[in-house]
C-alpha cells in the first residue's frame, strides 16, 4: 500500500493530467452528441418549413 501512495505521490502531475484529459474527453463527447442532435433537429425543422 505504501508503494502505491509513494508511486502516486511521485507521479502526481500524471494523475492530474489523466483526470484533466478524461474531463476534456467527456466535455468533447457531450458537445459532439449535442452537435449530432442539433443537426437532426435542424433537418426536421427545415422539412417542416418545406
Amino acid at each position: 500500500m505504501d508503494y502505491v501512495f509513494e508511486h502516486l505521490n511521485n507521479n502526481s502531475i500524471l494523475v492530474v493530467l489523466i483526470i484533466v484529459l478524461l474531463l476534456w474527453s467527456g466535455i468533447f463527447i457531450f458537445l459532439m452528441g449535442l452537435n449530432k442532435k442539433v443537426k437532426e433537429l435542424e433537418k426536421l425543422v427545415s422539412k417542416d418549413d418545406v
Partner: peptide, 16 residues
C-alpha cells in the same frame, strides 16, 4: 472537431 480535440489535448499535455 477531432482536430480541435487533438489541439486542446496537446495544450493540456504541454501545459501540465
Amino acid at each position: 472537431f477531432y482536430i480541435l480535440f487533438l489541439m486542446i489535448s496537446f495544450v493540456l499535455i504541454a501545459g501540465i
